[in-house]
């Protein structure tokens, strides 16, 4: 199946390259664009084909039911989807204010000669391997959060490894992505507009708010880039989320699972069961469709908001 897919994917690129070189640049580029769409489509089709056995057996129930019982070959991915939504929500709620703060601090408050250095440092944190974040989350962040939360509200967090831990770790990981996009837009505020803002008597803080309003499309762009990362992140989340793929929970202070970490944690032994591989592909299909839906919303919002 995989080999077949590779060949199918390769042919269009060869045709596109031929079009690019020998026919017309415009047509070549169009073909490339078409094949990017086709790639996503083929991936979705592949997931659907691989997930077909369990869909044929259970119907849509595989997406709507909870629980993960290999012994009875009963699988549901709803708890994983809930986990993905909850960890992403925690991550975005924390990351967006941080990203805005980072962007404004670097572009507005720091002296000009420090901006490059701090900007590069923040960008650098985005390139660190995620397994390092995971290790740090395992040994530092998780226990710290547990004692912090339990100090504020006794016995709330029974384990250091929960959906909340994963959300906070994700927030730290995705902040540089959102911040980079916002900073890029912020730097594009034209000097005459900046002068206008200060000429009407804005303080630095007020000027920053007005400029952020000016670059709101970049903020949206940063939001969706970061959200995509948060939903897809696998290794670091798998290390700190607690790995509870059995019991459904909406309490962020309990152990849980996300779709991508479910796939990562369950794939090694999935082949021993008849329906687990299809169930995991059902999860992958759900995550893909969810991601596409969010991107569609993003495109709609950005196009509607255009001046």
């Amino acid at each position: 199946m995989l080999g077949f897919l590779l060949v199918v994917l390769l042919i269009p690129y060869l045709i596109a390259a031929y079009g690019l070189l020998f026919v017309k640049l415009r047509w070549g580029l169009r073909l490339f664009g078409a094949f990017i769409v086709a790639t996503i489509g083929l991936l979705t089709v592949m997931f659907l084909v691989e997930a077909y056995p369990i869909i044929a057996r259970d119907g849509v129930a595989v997406f709507l039911q909870t629980g993960w019982d290999p012994v009875r070959e009963s699988y549901g991915v709803l708890q994983a989807l809930t986990g993905t939504v909850l960890t992403s929500a925690v991550a975005m709620a924390l990351a967006m204010p941080m990203a805005l703060g980072v962007a404004v601090t670097i572009n507005e408050i720091l002296p000009a000669r420090w901006r490059g250095v701090f900007g590069s440092l923040v960008d650098l944190t985005a390139t660190m391997p995620t397994v390092i974040y995971g290790l740090w989350g395992l040994f530092v962040l998780g226990p710290t959060l547990q004692s912090l939360v339990n100090t504020l509200a006794r016995d709330t967090m029974t384990s250091p490894y929960t959906l909340f831990t994963a959300g906070v770790l994700l927030a730290i990981m995705i902040t540089p992505y959102a911040a980079a996009v916002i900073r890029e837009g912020y730097a594009l505020v034209p000097k005459p507009v900046e002068e206008a803002i200060y000429a009407v008597g804005a303080t630095r803080f007020e000027a920053a708010l007005i400029k952020l309003r000016y670059v709101r499309n970049y903020i949206l762009g940063g939001f969706f880039l970061a959200l995509g990362r948060a939903m897809g992140e696998t290794v670091a989340v798998a290390m700190v989320v607690g790995g509870n793929f059995v019991r459904f929970t909406t309490n962020i202070f309990e152990s849980g699972i996300t779709i991508s970490s479910l796939i990562a944690l369950q794939f090694p032994n999935a082949a021993s069961y008849q329906y687990m591989v299809p169930a995991l592909f059902a999860g992958a299909l759900l995550l893909t469709l969810f991601g596409l839906a969010i991107n569609a919303v993003a495109i709609y919002i950005i196009q509607r908001g255009q001046i």
């Binding site: 005459p192 200060y198 000429a199 008597g201 007005i210």
Partner: peptide
Amino acid sequence: LRRKVQMIFQIPNPIPNL
């Protein structure tokens, strides 16, 4: 100072999204 001393610029510079 800026309340008392206002300025008109060479390139018209309204804040375009407001």
